[in-house]
């Protein structure tokens, strides 16, 4: 019968071209980091989608909880002074 040991899950991040940051592409299974990188290359860049890859064991990702959504993210919502559009500048003033 088949084995009971499933290879761990890895999250794959791909930089699509130089100058952009890596973005989450998906996940896959691999026995170790080296094979995870190779599997990621074969799966997520077979149509030239990438120039660089990160793989991270899924178990190592700590995520914020949706239950904490309010306390985590809402407080940032009432601080418009962090955005440049908050400030009025006289017409004709340039390079600001």
């Amino acid at each position: 019968m088949s084995s009971s040991t499933e290879w761990p899950l890895w999250e794959v991040f791909v930089r699509s071209r130089r100058g952009l940051s890596h973005t989450h592409a998906g996940s896959l299974h691999a026995p170790d980091a080296e094979m995870a990188l190779r599997n990621a290359r074969d799966l997520y860049t077979r149509r030239s989608e990438g120039v660089s890859i990160w793989v991270v064991p899924s178990a190592q990702v700590t995520a914020s909880s949706p239950d904490e959504k309010d306390s985590f993210f809402e407080p940032a919502g009432d601080k418009p002074y962090r955005h440049p559009t908050f400030y009025e500048i006289p017409e004709g003033v340039k390079h600001l």
Binding site: W7, D32, E34, W54, V55, Q60
Partner: peptide
Amino acid sequence: GAWVRDAAAAYAEKHTAPAHAAPRTA
């Protein structure tokens, strides 16, 4: 394919540093 998957898992067990050490290659 079970023996292949088992082999790779066994190899990883022998050769991978504890999971918390960031893999050098990535």
